[in-house]
Every structure is written in C-alpha cells, then in structure tokens.
Design a protein around this nucleic acid. Structure first.
Length: 296
DNA sequence: AGGCTGTCCTGCTAGC
DNA sequence: TGCTAGCAGGACAGCC
C-alpha cells in the first residue's frame, strides 16, 4: 500500500531510468487506469507517443512526469499500483494495464534490433484504484493537484501553519492526518505509526490538542517516513514493488499497524484494532488514551 | 464551508 | 469442495 515513502522510491527509479528517451509506443491494456483521460485510451496513447519525459516529480502520493511540450503525465498508484521498468522481452505481468515503450538511448543510426538498452515502463495495478492521466500545462504542478497540501518531507512545508490549522479543526487527529488538503502523503499505516510515536489517540479532536502535541505528531510522521524511505519503502505482500521490481521490507519495523494482540514495545499492553472509516486503526490503549467523550 | 459517508476494484482468507 | 462474506484502502463525489 504505497504511501509517500514508497512513491518517492518509485519517483527516484523513474528519474533514473525513463527520462530523455523518446516514447515509441503506448499500449493501454485496460481502460480503467486511464479513466480520467476523458478523450479515451486511444487518444491517451496517441498523445504521448513521440514525446519525452523530462523530469520525475512528486507531491504526497501523486507522481507526475513533465513532458517535452510543457504538459505532464500524472499518476497515482492507488492501493496496488506499481511502475516497473522492464526489458521489452519480459513476460507481461498478470495485472499489466499500460505499457510505455522507449527508444534506446544509443546512437540514432544504430539498428533498432541491436540496441541493448531499449526498455519499457509498465503500469501494473491489480485493484485499479490508481491511474494515469494527462495534465495539460502541468509540468510545474498539475491543476489536479492544487488542492493537495505539501507533504511533510517537502522543504516548503509550513511547520508553523500546520498546528494552527489542526487546532482549528473539530476532526480527530487521525482523520486530519489522512486529509490530503491538510498534509499529504500520509496513509492509514503511517498515520497509526506516527500517532503511536506521539502517544496520541487518533480520535483526539484537533482543537483539543496542544501545539506541542501537534509538533510531536509531525515529528512522528517524519520519523516513520524517513525510516521507511531509508529502507526502500514498506511492503506487506507482493503488491507493492518499486520501479525495478524489488520489494521493500519496512513492515518488520511496524509498531502498531497490523499488530493486533501483540505487546506494545513501550509498555507491553496488547495492541488493539478498531474499525475506522471503513478500515482499521491500530493503537496501544495504554500509551494512547482515548478522549473522554469516546465515539467508539 | 467544513465534515463525513459511500463507492469504486480485485483477490485473498476465514468460515460454513 | 465450493460457496459467500469480510477485508484491504486512497481519493473523490455528493450529501448534510
């Protein structure tokens, strides 16, 4: 389940492999991942063919690849999306959705069959919550992302404004962390991990938190993200694979997420799981006291 | 306007 | 064995 660190790993991989190569073909094998391109899959393919990616950028969990004409390819991995750089002959993945073929980077006169460095970029996505679309004029920042807040690893993230905004909200701090217009890049896993580090229950309303509480949350978010990034991202199964098909292994470091019944490493209390927004929240009931007016 | 819920997807697992 | 229900969850439309 890619969150910011995993997406950043993918961004780095794209930056290393697919820039400055002419796109020779685009094949859309399933229409759903390009559903946001209203002109349809064939137009999507035709528009990108012949273009070149010039950079690989990210905000929160969104990726975009500026093109040599000022537009950009915008992408989101959703829950199960992968970007795989493959040799052209490699067998198709079961959930291959979009294939970009690139020319080799060798001399133009070289016979195509002799180029050893042609490659493909493959968008593979089992559950298809993710997608790709074209962002006209979106090289700097696609219009679709203007409502997405800066992420906590962005040097321009406003550390002073964040606690002020949190303390103006009636929502629980976990809901706030998952709100991409407040802070981007945080998903269910790292929200739970950061709240455990900050020793705060996710149902505590923003307006009831002290500035120091919010600062601890932000510090916790950055700590788990930085640790995950250092290890190449989180992986729970084969769903998340980085740009070269290599799984992460940060899951072994998780303190609460998926750890129901396991002892809290700080106090030994069994970790609890509760339903939250059609998914789950994991927390230590001793270290993370629920607010008095409990809502569950 | 801010807050919140339902919905989209597939595949794996638990339970009968 | 084979079926179904439950679960995983990011983002957005749409409701209050």
């Amino acid at each position: 389940m890619p969150e910011l660190p995993e997406v950043e790993v993918v961004r780095r991989g794209l930056e290393a492999h697919v820039l400055d190569r002419r796109i020779t073909a685009v094949e859309v094998l399933h229409p759903r991942p390009v559903r946001r391109h209203l002109a349809g899959p064939s137009d999507f393919a035709a528009t990108l063919t012949g273009r070149t990616f010039t950079a690989a950028r990210r905000r929160g969990k969104y990726l975009w690849l500026p093109l040599d004409n000022g537009d950009a390819l915008l992408g989101h991995l959703g829950m199960s999306g992968q970007m795989l750089v493959q040799e052209p002959g490699a067998a198709d993945e079961k959930h291959l959705r979009v294939r970009f073929s690139f020319a080799g980077s060798g001399p133009a006169g070289e016979a195509p069959g002799e180029r050893s460095d042609r490659l493909e970029l493959r968008f593979v996505d089992q559950r298809m919550f993710g997608g790709l679309s074209l962002a006209p004029g979106g090289a700097e920042l696609p219009a679709e992302l203007t409502h997405i807040a800066r992420d906590p690893l962005d040097p321009a993230f406003d550390d002073a404004a964040f606690p002020r905004r949190v303390r103006r909200s009636e929502s629980g701090i976990k809901r706030i962390l998952l709100n991409q217009s407040m802070i981007s890049g945080v998903g269910n896993i790292y929200a739970d991990e950061a709240l455990w580090l900050a020793e705060l229950h996710g149902d505590r309303p923003g307006r009831m938190l002290r500035p120091a509480d919010v600062e601890r949350v932000l510090t916790g978010v950055r700590a788990v993200m930085t640790a995950a990034l250092a290890q190449g991202g989180t992986s729970f199964d084969a769903l998340y694979v980085n740009v070269n098909g290599e799984s992460g292994y940060f899951d072994r470091s998780l303190e609460v997420y998926g750890q129901e019944g396991q002892p809290c490493s700080r106090c030994g209390t069994p970790i609890r799981r509760v339903a939250f927004m059609n998914r789950s929240s994991y927390f230590c009931p001793t270290c993370q006291k629920a607010p008095r007016a409990r809502r569950n």
